[in-house]
Design a binder for these strands. Sequence first.
DNA 1: CCCAATATTCAACAGTCGTTGAAATGGAGT
DNA 2: ACTCCATTTCAACGACTGTTGAATATTGGG
Lengths: 230, 230
Amino acid sequence: MPHPPPVRSRGPKATKVPQAHLLDAAQAVFAREGIQGASIRAIAREADCDPSLLYYHFHGKEGMFEALLDRTLGPVVAELSLLGDPQDPRSVAERLWTVIRIYHTHLAGSAGLRDVVRGEIIRGAEGIQESIAQRIFPALGSIGRLIDLGIERGEIRKDTLPLFSTFFLARMELEILDLIPVLGPHVAGISAERAVPMAERAWFRLFWRGIATHPETPLPFLPETEEIHP
Amino acid sequence: MPHPPPVRSRGPKATKVPQAHLLDAAQAVFAREGIQGASIRAIAREADCDPSLLYYHFHGKEGMFEALLDRTLGPVVAELSLLGDPQDPRSVAERLWTVIRIYHTHLAGSAGLRDVVRGEIIRGAEGIQESIAQRIFPALGSIGRLIDLGIERGEIRKDTLPLFSTFFLARMELEILDLIPVLGPHVAGISAERAVPMAERAWFRLFWRGIATHPETPLPFLPETEEIHP
DNA sequence: CCCAATATTCAACAGTCGTTGAAATGGAGT
DNA sequence: ACTCCATTTCAACGACTGTTGAATATTGGG
Protein backbone atom coordinates (compact mmCIF):
# COMPACT_ATOMS: atom_id res chain seq x y z
CA MET A 1 0.00 0.00 0.00
CA PRO A 2 2.25 2.81 -1.20
CA HIS A 3 1.39 6.37 -0.42
CA PRO A 4 -1.37 7.88 -2.54
CA PRO A 5 -0.16 9.70 -5.65
CA PRO A 6 2.85 11.75 -4.54
CA VAL A 7 1.10 15.09 -4.78
CA ARG A 8 2.17 15.77 -1.22
CA SER A 9 3.76 19.08 -0.55
CA ARG A 10 6.93 19.49 1.42
CA GLY A 11 7.45 21.18 4.72
CA PRO A 12 5.88 20.49 8.08
CA LYS A 13 2.69 18.51 7.80
CA ALA A 14 0.75 20.31 10.48
CA THR A 15 2.88 21.35 13.39
CA LYS A 16 5.86 19.91 15.10
CA VAL A 17 5.70 16.13 15.36
CA PRO A 18 6.24 15.20 19.00
CA GLN A 19 9.29 13.01 19.44
CA ALA A 20 7.21 10.81 21.72
CA HIS A 21 5.09 9.97 18.71
CA LEU A 22 8.15 8.81 16.82
CA LEU A 23 9.28 6.69 19.76
CA ASP A 24 5.82 5.17 20.01
CA ALA A 25 6.05 4.20 16.38
CA ALA A 26 9.51 2.74 16.87
CA GLN A 27 8.29 0.72 19.83
CA ALA A 28 5.33 -0.62 17.88
CA VAL A 29 7.48 -1.69 14.96
CA PHE A 30 10.14 -3.23 17.19
CA ALA A 31 7.39 -5.25 18.84
CA ARG A 32 6.04 -6.48 15.52
CA GLU A 33 9.26 -7.11 13.64
CA GLY A 34 12.02 -7.53 16.18
CA ILE A 35 15.13 -5.45 16.01
CA GLN A 36 16.69 -6.61 12.81
CA GLY A 37 13.35 -6.71 11.07
CA ALA A 38 12.47 -3.18 12.09
CA SER A 39 13.58 -0.86 9.33
CA ILE A 40 13.84 2.89 9.59
CA ARG A 41 11.42 3.07 6.72
CA ALA A 42 8.89 0.88 8.50
CA ILE A 43 9.08 3.07 11.58
CA ALA A 44 8.59 6.12 9.39
CA ARG A 45 5.55 4.53 7.78
CA GLU A 46 4.14 3.76 11.22
CA ALA A 47 4.68 7.36 12.30
CA ASP A 48 3.42 8.61 8.93
CA CYS A 49 6.48 10.69 8.24
CA ASP A 50 9.57 10.59 6.10
CA PRO A 51 12.51 8.37 7.09
CA SER A 52 14.78 11.40 6.99
CA LEU A 53 12.92 12.89 9.91
CA LEU A 54 14.23 10.09 12.09
CA TYR A 55 17.74 11.10 11.13
CA TYR A 56 16.98 14.69 11.96
CA HIS A 57 15.65 14.04 15.45
CA PHE A 58 17.72 11.02 16.38
CA HIS A 59 20.82 9.79 14.65
CA GLY A 60 19.77 6.77 12.72
CA LYS A 61 18.53 3.50 14.09
CA GLU A 62 20.90 3.27 17.01
CA GLY A 63 20.00 6.74 18.22
CA MET A 64 16.33 5.88 18.17
CA PHE A 65 17.03 2.73 20.08
CA GLU A 66 18.94 4.51 22.80
CA ALA A 67 16.25 7.17 23.16
CA LEU A 68 13.64 4.46 23.49
CA LEU A 69 15.81 2.67 26.02
CA ASP A 70 16.07 5.78 28.17
CA ARG A 71 12.37 6.48 28.07
CA THR A 72 11.46 2.94 29.08
CA LEU A 73 14.23 1.90 31.44
CA GLY A 74 14.65 5.20 33.24
CA PRO A 75 11.66 4.82 35.55
CA VAL A 76 12.52 1.18 36.24
CA VAL A 77 16.05 1.96 37.36
CA ALA A 78 14.82 4.86 39.45
CA GLU A 79 12.17 2.85 41.29
CA LEU A 80 14.43 -0.15 41.84
CA SER A 81 17.14 2.00 43.37
CA LEU A 82 14.74 3.00 46.15
CA LEU A 83 14.18 -0.60 47.22
CA GLY A 84 17.53 -1.03 48.94
CA ASP A 85 16.82 1.60 51.59
CA PRO A 86 17.60 0.03 55.00
CA GLN A 87 14.96 2.29 56.60
CA ASP A 88 12.20 0.76 54.51
CA PRO A 89 9.85 -0.93 57.01
CA ARG A 90 8.78 -3.64 54.56
CA SER A 91 10.27 -7.11 54.66
CA VAL A 92 12.81 -8.10 52.04
CA ALA A 93 10.30 -10.61 50.70
CA GLU A 94 7.75 -7.90 50.07
CA ARG A 95 10.32 -5.68 48.45
CA LEU A 96 11.43 -8.49 46.14
CA TRP A 97 7.81 -8.91 45.13
CA THR A 98 7.80 -5.21 44.39
CA VAL A 99 10.61 -5.83 41.92
CA ILE A 100 8.21 -8.02 39.96
CA ARG A 101 5.53 -5.35 40.10
CA ILE A 102 7.89 -2.63 38.92
CA TYR A 103 9.01 -4.71 35.97
CA HIS A 104 5.42 -5.52 35.15
CA THR A 105 4.21 -1.95 35.40
CA HIS A 106 6.84 -0.38 33.20
CA LEU A 107 7.85 -3.17 30.88
CA ALA A 108 4.69 -5.08 30.09
CA GLY A 109 3.93 -2.81 27.17
CA SER A 110 7.38 -2.77 25.61
CA ALA A 111 7.54 -6.13 23.93
CA GLY A 112 9.91 -5.11 21.19
CA LEU A 113 12.34 -3.38 23.46
CA ARG A 114 12.64 -6.30 25.87
CA ASP A 115 13.53 -8.57 23.02
CA VAL A 116 15.98 -6.13 21.53
CA VAL A 117 17.84 -5.73 24.79
CA ARG A 118 18.04 -9.44 25.34
CA GLY A 119 19.20 -10.06 21.81
CA GLU A 120 21.90 -7.45 22.01
CA ILE A 121 23.23 -8.92 25.23
CA ILE A 122 23.31 -12.40 23.76
CA ARG A 123 24.94 -11.41 20.53
CA GLY A 124 27.14 -8.82 22.17
CA ALA A 125 26.82 -6.41 19.25
CA GLU A 126 29.79 -4.24 20.02
CA GLY A 127 28.32 -0.84 19.34
CA ILE A 128 25.17 -1.19 21.33
CA GLN A 129 26.17 -3.42 24.17
CA GLU A 130 27.88 -0.70 26.15
CA SER A 131 24.83 1.53 25.99
CA ILE A 132 22.77 -1.33 27.32
CA ALA A 133 25.16 -2.24 30.09
CA GLN A 134 25.04 1.29 31.47
CA ARG A 135 21.28 1.08 31.79
CA ILE A 136 20.75 -2.52 32.86
CA PHE A 137 23.46 -3.24 35.38
CA PRO A 138 22.45 -0.56 37.89
CA ALA A 139 19.02 -2.18 38.03
CA LEU A 140 20.51 -5.61 38.64
CA GLY A 141 22.78 -4.12 41.28
CA SER A 142 19.81 -2.80 43.22
CA ILE A 143 18.22 -6.22 43.33
CA GLY A 144 21.49 -7.85 44.33
CA ARG A 145 21.91 -5.49 47.29
CA LEU A 146 18.38 -6.25 48.38
CA ILE A 147 19.20 -9.94 48.46
CA ASP A 148 22.37 -9.21 50.42
CA LEU A 149 20.25 -7.35 52.93
CA GLY A 150 17.91 -10.32 53.18
CA ILE A 151 20.82 -12.59 53.97
CA GLU A 152 22.11 -10.21 56.64
CA ARG A 153 18.71 -10.07 58.27
CA GLY A 154 18.29 -13.84 58.19
CA GLU A 155 15.29 -13.78 55.88
CA ILE A 156 17.25 -15.44 53.09
CA ARG A 157 19.39 -18.57 53.30
CA LYS A 158 23.10 -18.02 53.75
CA ASP A 159 24.01 -20.33 50.90
CA THR A 160 22.09 -18.18 48.40
CA LEU A 161 24.18 -16.75 45.58
CA PRO A 162 23.00 -13.13 45.17
CA LEU A 163 24.26 -12.71 41.62
CA PHE A 164 22.53 -15.79 40.29
CA SER A 165 19.39 -15.21 42.31
CA THR A 166 19.11 -11.71 40.90
CA PHE A 167 19.41 -13.13 37.45
CA PHE A 168 16.78 -15.77 38.13
CA LEU A 169 14.24 -13.36 39.59
CA ALA A 170 14.57 -10.69 36.92
CA ARG A 171 15.00 -12.88 33.87
CA MET A 172 12.05 -15.10 34.68
CA GLU A 173 9.78 -12.12 35.12
CA LEU A 174 10.83 -10.90 31.68
CA GLU A 175 10.33 -14.36 30.22
CA ILE A 176 6.84 -14.39 31.70
CA LEU A 177 6.05 -11.05 30.09
CA ASP A 178 7.43 -12.26 26.77
CA LEU A 179 6.14 -15.79 26.49
CA ILE A 180 3.14 -16.34 28.74
CA PRO A 181 0.82 -14.12 26.71
CA VAL A 182 1.40 -16.50 23.82
CA LEU A 183 1.78 -19.81 25.66
CA GLY A 184 -0.98 -19.27 28.21
CA PRO A 185 -3.81 -19.26 25.69
CA HIS A 186 -2.12 -21.88 23.53
CA VAL A 187 -1.22 -24.58 26.06
CA ALA A 188 -3.51 -23.87 29.00
CA GLY A 189 -6.45 -22.12 27.39
CA ILE A 190 -6.09 -19.16 29.72
CA SER A 191 -6.32 -15.65 28.38
CA ALA A 192 -3.14 -13.60 28.33
CA GLU A 193 -4.62 -11.08 30.76
CA ARG A 194 -5.22 -13.75 33.39
CA ALA A 195 -2.21 -15.92 32.64
CA VAL A 196 0.50 -13.33 33.20
CA PRO A 197 -0.46 -12.37 36.77
CA MET A 198 -1.00 -16.02 37.64
CA ALA A 199 2.44 -16.91 36.35
CA GLU A 200 4.01 -14.02 38.22
CA ARG A 201 2.47 -15.12 41.51
CA ALA A 202 3.39 -18.74 40.93
CA TRP A 203 6.92 -17.73 40.04
CA PHE A 204 7.42 -15.54 43.07
CA ARG A 205 6.10 -18.21 45.43
CA LEU A 206 8.51 -20.73 43.95
CA PHE A 207 11.39 -18.28 43.97
CA TRP A 208 10.84 -17.21 47.56
CA ARG A 209 10.50 -20.77 48.81
CA GLY A 210 13.74 -21.48 46.98
CA ILE A 211 15.77 -18.85 48.81
CA ALA A 212 13.92 -18.24 52.08
CA THR A 213 15.22 -19.31 55.44
CA HIS A 214 11.66 -20.15 56.45
CA PRO A 215 9.98 -21.20 53.22
CA GLU A 216 6.60 -21.75 54.81
CA THR A 217 6.23 -18.23 56.16
CA PRO A 218 3.06 -16.80 54.59
CA LEU A 219 3.35 -13.92 52.16
CA PRO A 220 0.39 -11.73 53.08
CA PHE A 221 1.23 -9.11 50.46
CA LEU A 222 0.97 -11.65 47.64
CA PRO A 223 -2.51 -11.83 46.09
CA GLU A 224 -4.18 -15.21 46.22
CA THR A 225 -3.94 -17.26 43.06
CA GLU A 226 -7.36 -17.89 41.62
CA GLU A 227 -8.35 -21.39 40.66
CA ILE A 228 -7.57 -22.57 37.16
CA HIS A 229 -10.78 -23.32 35.33
CA PRO A 230 -10.16 -22.37 31.74
CA MET B 1 35.64 -9.73 0.06
CA PRO B 2 33.83 -10.81 -3.12
CA HIS B 3 34.69 -14.08 -4.70
CA PRO B 4 37.93 -14.07 -6.68
CA PRO B 5 37.56 -13.11 -10.34
CA PRO B 6 34.55 -15.02 -11.60
CA VAL B 7 36.53 -17.52 -13.59
CA ARG B 8 34.74 -20.21 -11.63
CA SER B 9 33.24 -22.96 -13.67
CA ARG B 10 29.73 -24.15 -13.14
CA GLY B 11 28.56 -27.52 -12.06
CA PRO B 12 29.43 -29.53 -8.99
CA LYS B 13 32.45 -28.16 -7.21
CA ALA B 14 33.89 -31.48 -6.12
CA THR B 15 31.26 -33.98 -5.18
CA LYS B 16 27.91 -33.83 -3.57
CA VAL B 17 27.79 -31.29 -0.75
CA PRO B 18 26.50 -33.03 2.37
CA GLN B 19 23.30 -31.44 3.61
CA ALA B 20 24.75 -31.58 7.12
CA HIS B 21 27.38 -29.13 5.97
CA LEU B 22 24.70 -26.71 4.83
CA LEU B 23 22.88 -27.04 8.14
CA ASP B 24 26.10 -26.44 10.04
CA ALA B 25 26.56 -23.24 8.08
CA ALA B 26 22.98 -22.17 8.75
CA GLN B 27 23.43 -22.81 12.45
CA ALA B 28 26.64 -20.79 12.57
CA VAL B 29 25.07 -17.84 10.81
CA PHE B 30 21.90 -17.97 12.90
CA ALA B 31 24.10 -17.87 16.00
CA ARG B 32 26.02 -14.84 14.76
CA GLU B 33 23.24 -12.80 13.24
CA GLY B 34 20.00 -13.95 14.76
CA ILE B 35 17.12 -15.04 12.61
CA GLN B 36 16.24 -11.86 10.84
CA GLY B 37 19.86 -10.97 10.33
CA ALA B 38 20.71 -14.33 8.83
CA SER B 39 20.33 -14.05 5.08
CA ILE B 40 20.27 -16.91 2.66
CA ARG B 41 23.22 -15.32 1.00
CA ALA B 42 25.20 -15.20 4.23
CA ILE B 43 24.52 -18.87 4.86
CA ALA B 44 25.65 -19.64 1.34
CA ARG B 45 28.85 -17.67 1.89
CA GLU B 46 29.47 -19.59 5.10
CA ALA B 47 28.95 -22.90 3.33
CA ASP B 48 30.97 -21.66 0.33
CA CYS B 49 28.26 -22.41 -2.17
CA ASP B 50 25.68 -20.58 -4.22
CA PRO B 51 22.46 -19.35 -2.61
CA SER B 52 20.48 -21.25 -5.19
CA LEU B 53 21.75 -24.49 -3.77
CA LEU B 54 19.84 -23.82 -0.59
CA TYR B 55 16.69 -23.54 -2.65
CA TYR B 56 17.45 -26.79 -4.33
CA HIS B 57 17.97 -28.83 -1.17
CA PHE B 58 15.58 -27.04 1.14
CA HIS B 59 12.86 -24.68 0.12
CA GLY B 60 14.13 -21.28 1.04
CA LYS B 61 14.80 -19.98 4.49
CA GLU B 62 11.87 -21.59 6.19
CA GLY B 63 12.76 -25.01 4.88
CA MET B 64 16.29 -24.70 6.17
CA PHE B 65 14.98 -23.64 9.52
CA GLU B 66 12.68 -26.63 9.84
CA ALA B 67 15.42 -29.05 8.84
CA LEU B 68 17.71 -27.52 11.45
CA LEU B 69 14.93 -27.75 14.01
CA ASP B 70 14.47 -31.45 13.36
CA ARG B 71 18.14 -32.22 13.57
CA THR B 72 18.57 -30.41 16.88
CA LEU B 73 15.31 -30.99 18.69
CA GLY B 74 14.76 -34.57 17.67
CA PRO B 75 17.16 -36.11 20.22
CA VAL B 76 15.88 -33.81 22.97
CA VAL B 77 12.27 -34.83 22.50
CA ALA B 78 13.27 -38.49 22.31
CA GLU B 79 15.27 -38.46 25.53
CA LEU B 80 12.72 -36.42 27.44
CA SER B 81 9.94 -38.79 26.52
CA LEU B 82 11.76 -41.61 28.35
CA LEU B 83 11.77 -39.73 31.64
CA GLY B 84 8.12 -40.28 32.43
CA ASP B 85 8.47 -44.04 32.73
CA PRO B 86 6.84 -45.08 36.05
CA GLN B 87 9.24 -48.03 36.22
CA ASP B 88 12.25 -45.76 36.35
CA PRO B 89 13.88 -46.37 39.76
CA ARG B 90 15.20 -42.83 40.08
CA SER B 91 13.44 -40.20 42.14
CA VAL B 92 11.45 -37.52 40.38
CA ALA B 93 13.97 -34.97 41.64
CA GLU B 94 16.81 -36.77 39.95
CA ARG B 95 14.85 -37.10 36.74
CA LEU B 96 14.03 -33.40 36.73
CA TRP B 97 17.73 -32.72 37.08
CA THR B 98 18.21 -34.97 34.08
CA VAL B 99 15.97 -32.61 32.13
CA ILE B 100 18.53 -29.89 32.71
CA ARG B 101 21.33 -32.16 31.61
CA ILE B 102 19.51 -33.19 28.44
CA TYR B 103 18.89 -29.59 27.47
CA HIS B 104 22.50 -28.75 28.21
CA THR B 105 23.90 -31.66 26.25
CA HIS B 106 21.95 -31.13 23.06
CA LEU B 107 21.24 -27.42 23.06
CA ALA B 108 24.33 -25.76 24.46
CA GLY B 109 25.88 -25.56 21.02
CA SER B 110 22.86 -24.25 19.16
CA ALA B 111 22.78 -20.62 20.19
CA GLY B 112 21.15 -19.33 17.07
CA LEU B 113 18.44 -21.92 16.99
CA ARG B 114 17.40 -21.34 20.59
CA ASP B 115 16.97 -17.69 19.91
CA VAL B 116 15.10 -18.28 16.69
CA VAL B 117 12.61 -20.60 18.35
CA ARG B 118 12.02 -18.19 21.19
CA GLY B 119 11.60 -15.27 18.82
CA GLU B 120 9.15 -17.11 16.65
CA ILE B 121 7.03 -18.06 19.62
CA ILE B 122 6.98 -14.50 20.87
CA ARG B 123 6.20 -12.93 17.56
CA GLY B 124 3.91 -15.74 16.53
CA ALA B 125 5.03 -15.61 12.93
CA GLU B 126 2.11 -17.46 11.42
CA GLY B 127 3.88 -19.70 8.98
CA ILE B 128 6.55 -20.97 11.28
CA GLN B 129 4.82 -21.13 14.60
CA GLU B 130 2.92 -24.32 13.81
CA SER B 131 6.10 -26.10 12.85
CA ILE B 132 7.62 -25.08 16.16
CA ALA B 133 4.62 -26.06 18.23
CA GLN B 134 4.72 -29.59 16.85
CA ARG B 135 8.30 -29.99 18.01
CA ILE B 136 8.31 -28.11 21.31
CA PHE B 137 5.08 -29.04 23.01
CA PRO B 138 5.75 -32.79 23.20
CA ALA B 139 8.91 -31.98 25.11
CA LEU B 140 7.05 -29.73 27.54
CA GLY B 141 4.39 -32.42 27.93
CA SER B 142 6.99 -34.94 29.05
CA ILE B 143 8.23 -32.63 31.77
CA GLY B 144 4.68 -31.81 32.87
CA ARG B 145 3.84 -35.48 33.29
CA LEU B 146 6.97 -35.96 35.32
CA ILE B 147 5.86 -33.22 37.70
CA ASP B 148 2.41 -34.80 37.91
CA LEU B 149 4.10 -38.03 38.91
CA GLY B 150 6.08 -36.21 41.58
CA ILE B 151 2.86 -34.81 43.05
CA GLU B 152 1.24 -38.23 43.06
CA ARG B 153 4.20 -39.73 44.89
CA GLY B 154 4.33 -36.93 47.43
CA GLU B 155 7.74 -35.67 46.39
CA ILE B 156 6.29 -32.42 45.09
CA ARG B 157 3.90 -30.06 46.87
CA LYS B 158 0.25 -30.48 46.04
CA ASP B 159 -0.22 -26.77 45.32
CA THR B 160 2.35 -26.86 42.54
CA LEU B 161 1.06 -25.85 39.11
CA PRO B 162 2.60 -28.34 36.67
CA LEU B 163 2.19 -26.18 33.58
CA PHE B 164 3.88 -23.16 35.05
CA SER B 165 6.56 -25.20 36.78
CA THR B 166 7.42 -26.88 33.51
CA PHE B 167 7.76 -23.48 31.93
CA PHE B 168 9.96 -22.21 34.75
CA LEU B 169 12.30 -25.19 34.71
CA ALA B 170 12.78 -25.34 30.97
CA ARG B 171 12.84 -21.65 30.16
CA MET B 172 15.34 -20.79 32.87
CA GLU B 173 17.69 -23.50 31.66
CA LEU B 174 17.54 -22.00 28.19
CA GLU B 175 18.06 -18.51 29.57
CA ILE B 176 21.12 -19.77 31.39
CA LEU B 177 22.53 -21.23 28.18
CA ASP B 178 21.81 -17.99 26.33
CA LEU B 179 22.81 -15.31 28.78
CA ILE B 180 25.19 -16.66 31.39
CA PRO B 181 28.08 -17.14 28.97
CA VAL B 182 27.93 -13.38 28.38
CA LEU B 183 26.90 -12.15 31.81
CA GLY B 184 29.07 -14.50 33.86
CA PRO B 185 32.36 -13.05 32.68
CA HIS B 186 30.97 -9.52 32.52
CA VAL B 187 29.34 -9.15 35.93
CA ALA B 188 31.00 -11.83 38.04
CA GLY B 189 34.34 -12.31 36.36
CA ILE B 190 33.73 -16.02 35.97
CA SER B 191 34.54 -17.75 32.71
CA ALA B 192 31.63 -18.94 30.61
CA GLU B 193 32.75 -22.56 30.99
CA ARG B 194 32.54 -22.42 34.78
CA ALA B 195 29.59 -20.05 35.04
CA VAL B 196 27.06 -22.11 33.12
CA PRO B 197 27.30 -25.30 35.23
CA MET B 198 27.34 -23.21 38.41
CA ALA B 199 24.19 -21.41 37.34
CA GLU B 200 22.50 -24.66 36.40
CA ARG B 201 23.19 -26.18 39.82
CA ALA B 202 22.11 -23.03 41.63
CA TRP B 203 18.96 -22.89 39.54
CA PHE B 204 18.01 -26.49 40.14
CA ARG B 205 18.56 -26.21 43.89
CA LEU B 206 16.33 -23.15 43.99
CA PHE B 207 13.71 -24.74 41.75
CA TRP B 208 13.57 -27.95 43.71
CA ARG B 209 13.34 -26.19 47.05
CA GLY B 210 10.52 -24.17 45.51
CA ILE B 211 8.37 -27.16 44.62
CA ALA B 212 9.51 -29.96 46.95
CA THR B 213 7.42 -31.29 49.79
CA HIS B 214 10.60 -31.65 51.83
CA PRO B 215 12.85 -28.86 50.58
CA GLU B 216 15.77 -29.82 52.81
CA THR B 217 16.12 -33.34 51.50
CA PRO B 218 19.65 -33.62 50.12
CA LEU B 219 20.13 -34.09 46.39
CA PRO B 220 23.00 -36.57 46.24
CA PHE B 221 22.96 -36.69 42.45
CA LEU B 222 23.63 -32.95 42.18
CA PRO B 223 27.33 -32.08 41.95
CA GLU B 224 28.65 -29.81 44.66
CA THR B 225 28.92 -26.16 43.75
CA GLU B 226 32.49 -25.00 43.89
CA GLU B 227 33.38 -21.85 45.76
CA ILE B 228 33.27 -18.57 43.91
CA HIS B 229 36.70 -17.01 43.85
CA PRO B 230 36.99 -15.26 40.50
C1' DC C 1 6.31 42.32 5.44
C1' DC C 2 10.56 40.07 5.35
C1' DC C 3 14.01 37.22 7.22
C1' DA C 4 16.09 33.52 9.68
C1' DA C 5 15.60 29.31 12.03
C1' DT C 6 13.44 25.12 12.40
C1' DA C 7 11.04 21.15 10.81
C1' DT C 8 9.85 18.28 7.16
C1' DT C 9 10.03 16.09 2.64
C1' DC C 10 12.05 14.65 -1.78
C1' DA C 11 15.25 12.27 -4.67
C1' DA C 12 18.90 9.58 -5.24
C1' DC C 13 23.00 6.63 -3.98
C1' DA C 14 24.98 2.09 -3.53
C1' DG C 15 24.01 -2.12 -1.22
C1' DT C 16 21.66 -6.32 0.03
C1' DC C 17 17.81 -9.17 0.03
C1' DG C 18 14.87 -13.57 -1.58
C1' DT C 19 13.87 -15.89 -5.54
C1' DT C 20 13.81 -17.90 -10.09
C1' DG C 21 14.93 -19.85 -14.76
C1' DA C 22 18.37 -21.33 -17.50
C1' DA C 23 22.96 -23.04 -18.24
C1' DA C 24 26.72 -25.92 -17.10
C1' DT C 25 29.00 -29.86 -14.90
C1' DG C 26 30.13 -34.58 -13.47
C1' DG C 27 29.13 -39.27 -12.89
C1' DA C 28 26.22 -43.48 -13.53
C1' DG C 29 24.06 -46.55 -16.63
C1' DT C 30 23.92 -48.51 -21.06
C1' DA D 1 30.94 -43.18 -26.56
C1' DC D 2 26.47 -41.47 -25.42
C1' DT D 3 22.75 -40.13 -22.84
C1' DC D 4 20.42 -38.95 -18.87
C1' DC D 5 19.92 -36.98 -14.50
C1' DA D 6 21.06 -35.08 -10.11
C1' DT D 7 23.63 -31.37 -8.62
C1' DT D 8 25.60 -26.91 -8.79
C1' DT D 9 26.40 -22.26 -10.55
C1' DC D 10 25.29 -18.03 -13.07
C1' DA D 11 22.72 -13.99 -14.11
C1' DA D 12 19.14 -11.27 -13.46
C1' DC D 13 14.65 -9.44 -11.47
C1' DG D 14 12.27 -6.21 -8.43
C1' DA D 15 11.93 -4.83 -3.85
C1' DC D 16 13.76 -3.10 0.16
C1' DT D 17 17.58 -1.24 3.03
C1' DG D 18 20.37 2.90 5.65
C1' DT D 19 21.84 7.23 4.66
C1' DT D 20 22.65 11.82 2.81
C1' DG D 21 22.23 16.52 0.55
C1' DA D 22 19.34 19.62 -1.25
C1' DA D 23 14.78 21.61 -1.61
C1' DT D 24 10.67 23.15 0.53
C1' DA D 25 7.25 24.63 3.98
C1' DT D 26 6.00 26.68 8.49
C1' DT D 27 6.69 29.56 12.31
C1' DG D 28 8.16 33.44 15.16
C1' DG D 29 10.59 37.81 15.65
C1' DG D 30 11.79 42.27 14.15
